[in-house]
Amino acid sequence: MSSIQSKDDIEIRLMEKKHMKEALNCFSVFDLQESLSTLEAFYECDSKAFYVAINRKDNRVIGACGAPVTTHNSGFLGLYVVDSEFQNRGIGKQLFESCLQNIGNRNCGLHAVPEKLEMYRNKAGFRVSEGISMVVCSGIPMNWQSLRQNVDKEIKIEVFNRDNNELLQKIIDYDSRVQMNGNREKLINLCLHNSGYTTFVAINDNTKQLNGFGCIRIDYEGKGMIGPVYGDNEIIGEVLIYNLLKSCPVTQTKGLLYMTISSSMTGIEISKKLELTETERCERVFTKHVIPVNHSLIYCLFSPNFGL
C-alpha cells in the first residue's frame, strides 16, 4: 500500500526520504524528540514501516508515524504526530492503522504517553505491560564535570574510530548482548558511521574486551541527544556519559535530551546530578509479548520512538 485517499484532501502514503525533515519539524512543534540521523538509520533498515500524511493543497507533511521491525521480529511504533490544525479528523488513526497493517501478525511495542495509555490498551491492543517506563529528562546539564571521569586502570575510555572494523564488530556484538541476541547489525552500522553520531567505548586494555559504549548526536532542534549508553556496571555508564557530554558543548547552550528507563536507578540518579528536569514517564506496552532486553546494561536508551 503506497497511498490511501483520505477525506479533506489528505493523502496517507509511504514516507520517502524527502519527507523526513518535514515530519521531524511537525514532531518538534509538540516538543517531541528525535534526530534526523536516527530516523534515517531506522528508515534504511525498514523503509516500508513509515507513513506520512500529505495535505494535497500545498503538498505539505502534516502527520507521520513509523513502526520499524528491529529485533525478535517485533516492531516499535513512534514518531506518531498530526499537525494541530488537522487533528480530530481521523488522520492519526489512519497513520496508526497503516503502521499496524504493515506489522501484520508480528509483535509491536510503543512508549505510551500517560494520557493515551488506556486508549492504547483498550482500543489498540497494546495490553502487555513490561512494568518499565521510559523516563524523559531535559535541560542544561549542570555539574557534568562532577560525574565520575575514570573507571579503573584496566578500563580505557576512547572515541570510536569509524575505520576500526574490529571494534565496530565488538560494538555490534555488545548491542546484541543488550538485546538478548537480537540482531541490529545494520542499524548500528548506519548510526555509528553517520557523522552526526559521536561514540565512546569502554575497553579492557588487557583483554581488549568491550565493556560498554555510548553515543550522542544532535536532535532536530539542535539540542544534544544522548543514547544509547550501555555498560557492564554503573561506573562505566557514568564515565561514558561524562565523556559524551564533554564532547558535545552544544548541550551547555541548547540543552540536553536524556532518556533512561525506570528500572535504571543509576540512569535516574545521573539525571538528578545533572539537574535535568524529568518531563514524562511513558510506559512500555506491547501487543503480544515483551521484547527481550537486558535492562541491567542500559543507562540511556537508543531512541524514544523506536526502542531501547
Rank of each mutant, 00 (worst) to 15 (best):
M1K: 14
I4H: 15
S6M: 14
E11W: 07
K17C: 11
K18A: 13
N25G: 07
F30P: 00
Q33H: 12
S35F: 05
S35H: 04
L36E: 14
E40N: 15
F42N: 05
F42E: 08
K48Q: 12
A49S: 15
Y51M: 10
R60W: 05
A64T: 05
G66Y: 07
A67N: 14
V69P: 09
G75H: 13
S84D: 14
E85K: 15
F86E: 09
I91E: 04
L100K: 13
Q101S: 14
Q101V: 09
I103G: 04
N107Q: 07
A112M: 00
A112T: 00
L117K: 04
R121T: 12
V128K: 09
E130P: 01
I132H: 13
S138A: 12
P141G: 04
W144G: 03
S146Q: 14
R148I: 09
N150P: 03
E154T: 08
I157R: 01
F160L: 11
F160G: 07
N164I: 11
N164K: 12
N164E: 15
E166K: 14
L167C: 05
I172S: 12
Y174G: 06
Y174L: 06
V178N: 10
Q179I: 03
N183Y: 07
L187T: 00
L190P: 00
L192P: 04
G196T: 11
T198I: 13
F200A: 07
V201K: 07
V201N: 06
F213K: 06
G214P: 02
I216P: 01
I216Q: 04
I216K: 01
Y230F: 15
D232I: 14
E234R: 10
I236C: 01
G237T: 02
V239T: 01
L240A: 11
I241R: 04
L245V: 09
T251W: 05
T253W: 08
T253G: 09
L256Y: 03
M259G: 06
M259Y: 15
T260P: 03
S263Y: 06
G267R: 02
G267E: 02
G267L: 04
I268N: 08
L276Q: 10
E278H: 08
C282H: 11
E283H: 00
V285Y: 09
F286C: 05
N294T: 08
H295S: 13
S296H: 06
C300I: 04
F302R: 07
G307C: 00
L308S: 01
